[in-house]
């Protein structure tokens, strides 16, 4: 009985010790664990110029400009601020206007962001195309076609 209590204490101490260490590490890592900066942080000057960093946000609708070849320019926004991004290369399948993406590259002195890699950030929404269409219409304040309401 005595030994069992000792072992229970041992297991308890391990668990609480490791949990406390992990909690401190998680808190301490905080900002360093951020996978990307937001355009607001770029605008506030929190992103060091010239260093390789990641910037994430939504591709502003209507901002995508395709130049010759694989060159593409677009604005990245988090609702408050936006950053102009330049990229040359193949874009992932999920890249489109309004989509969340993460770009890795360098902030140029002019405030433009030269991306070396563009990753699409997928959200947690999964739905059939018809539902997405209906949602889009509803968002724009229109009427959902009657065909969708009934069988």
């Amino acid at each position: 009985m005595q030994r069992r209590r000792q072992r229970m204490l041992f297991a308890g101490v391990i668990l609480t010790g490791v949990a406390a260490a992990a909690a401190l590490a998680v808190r301490g890592l905080g900002e360093n664990m951020l996978f990307f900066f937001s355009p607001s942080q770029v605008a506030a000057g929190e992103v060091p110029a010239g260093q390789s960093v990641r910037v994430g946000g939504l591709v502003v609708r209507g901002s995508v400009v395709r130049d010759s070849g694989l060159e593409v320019r677009f604005a990245l926004s988090d609702g408050a601020e936006s950053v102009l991004v330049r990229y040359e290369g193949i874009l992932p399948d999920l890249f489109r206007e309004g989509q969340g993406i993460v770009a890795r590259g360098r902030l140029l002195t002019g405030g433009e962001f030269a991306a070396e890699e563009v990753l699409a950030k997928h959200d947690e929404n999964y739905m059939p195309p018809e539902v997405a269409e209906a949602l889009e219409i509803a968002r724009e304040g229109g009427q959902i076609p009657a065909a969708d309401a009934g069988p």
Partner: peptide
Amino acid sequence: PMWGTYWVWDA
């Protein structure tokens, strides 16, 4: 195909 990378070191 979806993200554009096989692996990233995110959390």
